[in-house]
Amino acid sequence: MLDIRGLTASIGDKPILKGIDLTVPAGEVHAIMGPNGSGKSTLGYVLSGREDYTVTGGSAMFNDADILAMAPEQRAAAGLFLAFQAPIELPGVNNANFLRTALNAIRRAHGEPELDAVQFLKLARAETKRLAMPDDMLKRNVNVGFSGGEKKRNEVLQMAILRPKLAILDETDSGLDIDALKIVADGVNALRGPDFSALVITHHQRLLDHLVPNRVHVLAHGRIVRTGGPELAKELEKSGYAGLIAEAA
C-alpha cells in the first residue's frame, strides 16, 4: 500500500526528515510515536504534498504510484487522507458544501457519478449519526468557531465520508475526552478492511488500546529509530522516549 524509502525533506534550508524507511501493507494500521519536533507532522505533510516542504531525496510509492509527483488533490483522489493536527478554518464555507465538493471531485476523478444534494445529505447524515455527532456540524462553517475537540471530530467525519485508502491521523486524539477518543477509534475501525491502511500519529496508549496497531514506529530527529509490535507503545508509555533515542544515537 505505502512504501517509503530513504525519504528526506526540508523546510527552507532546514532538513527535517533525514531518511525515512517505512512500509505499511494493505489492511494494516501502524502507529507513529515520537517526541515533539521529531518530524511526525512533517511526514504527513510531505506525503500529502504541502508546498513549503521540499523533498530532497528518497521515494514514496502509494499502491505502486509515485505520489510525490502528484498535486495534493491528485493524492486525495488516489485515496490519501490527512487528518490535520491543527485543522484549518474556512470562514463562510459551509461544512456540508465543502464535503460534497470534495467528495464529488474525488468521484469525478474515478469516473463515478457525482452525488446530488439529496443523496449527499443522506450519506452525510448517516455518518454524523454513526459517529454520534450533532447534525448541525454539517451546517456550520468549516472549523470556524469549533472547539479543539470539535475540530478533531470534524476531521474524522470528513474521513468517514471521503473513505480514503490510506488515512494519516496526526494527533487526532490529542485534547479529546474519553468519549471523543472512542469516536476517533471507531471512525478508523469502521474503515478497516483489506483495502484500508492507516498511519496513526499519537502520544497516547489509550487510542492504541482501541485501535490495536499492527506495528508501532518511533520517530526521532527525522528518523525511525525503533519499530515493534503493539507492546512497544506500552513500553514507551512507561519508560519514555529518552532512553530509546540515546540508544539510537
Partner: peptide
C-alpha cells in the same frame, strides 16, 4: 486554507472559488 481544500480533493481553482464565496 488552499492546501487543506486540496488535501480533501478540490482543485486549486475550485478551492479558490469556495474560499472566495465564503
Amino acid at each position: 486554507q488552499l492546501f487543506y481544500c486540496r488535501q480533501r480533493g478540490l482543485s486549486e481553482e475550485d478551492a479558490v472559488g469556495l474560499i472566495v464565496n465564503g
